[in-house]
Nucleic acid binder design. Structure first.
Lengths: 345, 345
DNA sequence: GACAATGATGACAAGGTTGTCTTTTTTTGC
DNA sequence: GCAAAAAAAGACAACCTTGTCATCATTGTC
């Protein structure tokens, strides 16, 4: 493996100059810079993370805390972050973190001491903890929030537009001819749940001209069993909806099960749409129309922001709120409403 | 943060001696060893990973390759490994790895060069790739296999006993009074599928006295839709089974759905058991009786082996095949067979 | 044309650990 | 009780990078 010394020899400069070029310091002639860059790529040189960390006391890795292993959201994001870091030539260091425990602060400090990370990505629900923010600020760690419930001044964030996605998938159902649509909402404490519900209601209002018309909302709270009950209630009601939009793919799967119990076929008798783009959406049958969370885009944006944060570093951090575009994935779970239930426009 | 120098001063010895104690080298008097250990814990000293890596050119982290992000198995194991490493005071460095791509070897070498890991954990399906083994051996990387299809001499492995677990959960169904039991098997290429099917058939044979009696096996191949079809076929057959044991929790969920469509209630009309202990098993309703893969135990055992491999290192590696005990989780998806379908003992 | 100011580059130390070699202490054998 | 051998402990360099300070070259000013 070539070292900085090899590069310096090859470029005919001192090692310090190579260091300057690597770190984008000023005061290097562009001609020299070019020579050094050339030598670096010729030798396929990669700086030693260990040596850098030793000198500066900081790791170049990006830190990420991870609380709930069973959460599909966190593991998907984890994977996307690994990919994004890898693509950007950086590393991801994940730490297990239980924010509900008393000693969370010690746990966090141990993580920071051991890994020496100087920049982090905060995911829900940790990204909303004020105490966590304070702790990181105190130790001078830069961070980016992913899908926070509320923005924080001076801190960049990355998120998808939940409200708009919910509106769009509802519009898809409306376009198919559905006029009476149920929504199984997530847990009201999650910011995303509220946004999705609002997007749904907005679309219904735009279609009917009046808020609430044709919309049936119940709280599934991201809980399979509860969603199962809610869906059963909806589907046995007098004027049952012809489509159900669930705020998560799991709850959509529960809706499938409720439909199955009642002898209703998806999508012939009842259309179902989900949200998340979870693996289960592809797995279950018929495959589920859903909103794919742009995990990859979110992760790339987060890494990108952290990459740009470093160089400036003179206090003037450019804060941004990044909205990553999502995708509606049309699969086989939505069709036209059954003829006898179609309402006049 | 205290350094090795602080420890040496506190213990009244040279830094080299502290280093010797840390690395469990011979030639240190037990009295001295004690003093140093005391000083280390008094100061809450942690060696700097960066400095160590710089000196030795090797990272102390444990490497792990990760291919399929949507695989619940891999993400569960990933989490368990993080936990186990954290408990053992080590780090986990994961790399994304696509063994189907042509340039997998370059990808692997880049991973090794960049991370400098000297010991790794190989998970299915990578752990069965002979080429991968050769590549690691060539670069002198120690590794442990997790649930390999076949053992490799000179390499330790960790696994659960799939056959026995399948036998046990089948026995549970037999004890409840079921005599005609269906099995939806996994993909025949997976070693685990074959073991689970064998365990099932063994239990059925032990109960009935003849191989195959009362057993209905079909191949679900770990595919939701296929499992749905298989379950439907089983449940509409003339002499339908009163219980179905699926080789994965997902396929068990498909069985729930098939039952729902046919108007059968779980567990009143049909008992269902799964395998894996996936999050979905807790989520769906009724909650699923299943075999919990001992992810935590497997990860701990793997880390443990790697911890012990290092010190010896004098060629004589103690190879072991480690079987980690599993747990059958009894939930609410299995009951007695419906009265009219019970057969005489 | 001499001097200062600025820009570009280099020499060297430091950071925490371990390998090599050396020195000191203890044990063994007579 | 002494020499030799073995065990225990230490001194010092090396690993690769970056910060500090010094040096050299160029430009601008009077």
């Amino acid at each position: 493996m070539p070292t900085i010394i090899d590069v310096a020899k090859k470029a005919g400069v001192s090692i310090k100059t190579v260091s300057r070029v690597m770190n984008n310091e000023a005061r290097v002639r562009s001609e020299t810079r070019r020579k050094v860059r050339q030598a670096m790529s010729d030798l396929d040189y990669r700086p030693s993370a260990a040596a850098r960390q030793m000198r500066s006391g900081k790791s170049t890795a990006i830190g990420m805390l991870y609380s709930d292993p069973s959460s599909g959201y966190q593991s998907q994001l984890n994977h996307a972050m690994m990919q994004a870091c890898s693509d950007a030539g950086r590393y991801l260091t994940v730490g297990l973190f239980d924010e509900t425990k008393r000693q969370w602060k010690r746990q966090l400090e141990a993580f920071l001491d051991r890994t020496k990370v100087s920049c982090m990505v905060l995911v829900p629900p940790m990204c909303d903890s004020r105490a966590l923010h304070d702790c990181l600020a105190e130790r001078d760690v830069k961070y980016v929030l992913i899908s926070p419930s509320r923005e924080k001044s001076g801190v960049s964030s990355v998120a998808m537009d939940d409200k708009r996605a919910a509106r769009e998938i509802t519009e898809h159902l409306l376009q198919l001819g559905h006029r009476r649509i149920g929504h199984i909402a997530g847990h009201p404490d999650h910011a995303a749940s509220v946004l999705r519900r609002t997007g749904f209601l907005d679309a219904m209002e735009a279609a009917s001209g009046r808020r609430g018309t044709g919309a049936v909302v119940s709280e599934g709270r991201f809980d399979f069993r509860r969603a199962l009950e809610m869906a059963e209630t909806m589907l046995t009601a007098e004027a049952r909806p012809t489509a159900i939009f669930a705020a998560s793919d799991e709850m959509a799967a529960a809706t499938y099960m409720a439909a199955g119990r009642l002898g209703l076929s998806v999508p012939r008798d009842i259309s179902v749409a989900g949200f998340d783009g979870a693996p289960i959406a592809e797995i279950i049958w018929p495959s589920l129309t859903t909103v794919a969370q742009p995990y990859g885009g979110i992760a790339r944006a987060a890494v990108d922001i952290l990459n740009r944060v470093e160089p400036g570093e003179d206090g003037e951090i450019h804060t941004e709120k990044n909205i990553v575009p999502h995708n509606i994935i049309i699969r086989n779970s939505c069709g036209k409403p059954p003829r006898h239930l179609r309402e006049a426009k």
